[in-house]
């Protein structure tokens, strides 16, 4: 049975997820356009969005294959972009009940905004809020891919429209909410500088994973 407070959390999650769903729709439209330009059929673009639901991974995998990098390199690049989900999953783990299979299924609902808004700030997460926030974003992600894949000619050049500025803005909104919590600013700045310093030297995606290790200073607090 789903308790009343679970339902309330889920509904609050849905409300919090809707603005991110609208932004996700713009992002996934960009993905649909680029994927079809790269040789995907619209159905392939749609299946990728439905199964992966992770923008950075989808863009990375697609751009690698288009430039002749091959399937293995594409999957590796996507996995590197997704490496942050290892850190997010570790943080979320104690808040998910049930056996390993059930926890694995619940973990599939993690996308960046949902994970951030479901964070209680004390090391625990509200999982029903997480599920609720992901639901509209999933719908938005699929709808946007459909629009982009079938209507790419109407959208035109993504960079000319400034749509590439949306992805960092999306994460910036999540970051600014986090920075309102005490004790987070110095460590966020350290993580950002470390990640930027690593960019020229390691494959894309790795700087974020290494920067996550800065959180280990928590051991000394």
């Amino acid at each position: 049975m789903v308790h009343a407070d679970h339902r309330a959390s889920f509904r609050r999650g849905v409300r919090l997820g809707v603005p991110f769903a609208a932004v996700g729709l713009l992002l996934s439209s960009s993905f649909g356009v680029l994927a079809v330009q790269a040789g995907f059929s619209p159905v392939q673009a749609l299946v990728m969005s439905a199964l992966v639901h992770a923008g950075a991974a989808q863009f990375a995998a697609t751009s690698i294959v288009v430039t002749g990098g091959g399937v293995v390199a594409g999957v590796v690049a996507a996995s590197l972009m997704n490496a942050r989900f290892l850190a997010m999953g570790a943080a979320l783990a104690p808040s998910l009940p049930g056996g390993p299979a059930l926890r694995a299924v619940q973990a599939q609902t993690v996308v960046d905004p949902s994970w951030a808004v479901a964070n209680n700030g004390d090391g625990t997460f509200d999982r029903w809020l997480l599920f609720g926030a992901t639901a509209p974003q999933y719908v938005g992600w699929i709808s946007g891919t459909l629009l982009g894949a079938f209507g790419g000619d109407l959208i035109g050049d993504i960079e000319r429209l400034g749509l590439d500025a949306i992805y960092p803005t999306f994460f910036l909104a999540l970051l600014i909410a986090e920075l309102r919590r005490p004790g987070s600013r110095g460590i966020a700045l350290t993580g950002a500088l470390l990640a930027l310093g690593l960019v020229p030297f390691v494959p894309a995606g790795i700087p974020i994973l290494v920067a996550a290790a800065v959180a280990l200073v928590g051991l000394a607090r």
């Binding site: 950075a56 942050r84 850190a87 997010m88 570790a90 943080a91 960046d112 994970w115 951030a116 964070n119 700030g121 004390d122 090391g123 992805y167 960092p168 994460f171 910036l172 999540l174 970051l175 986090e178 920075l179 919590r181 004790g183 987070s184 600013r185 460590i187 966020a188 700045l189 350290t190 993580g191 950002a192 500088l193 470390l194 990640a195 930027l196 960019v199 894309a204 700087p207 974020i208 920067a211 996550a212 800065v214 959180a215 280990l216 200073v217 928590g218 051991l219 607090r221």
Partner: peptide, 19 residues
């Protein structure tokens, strides 16, 4: 738990900076 609390700001800051 103290480490987990610090993960969100660090990971998001790194994502914003690199993207």
């Amino acid at each position: 738990t103290r480490v987990l609390v610090l993960l969100p700001p660090v990971v998001l800051a790194a994502l914003v900076a690199t993207s």
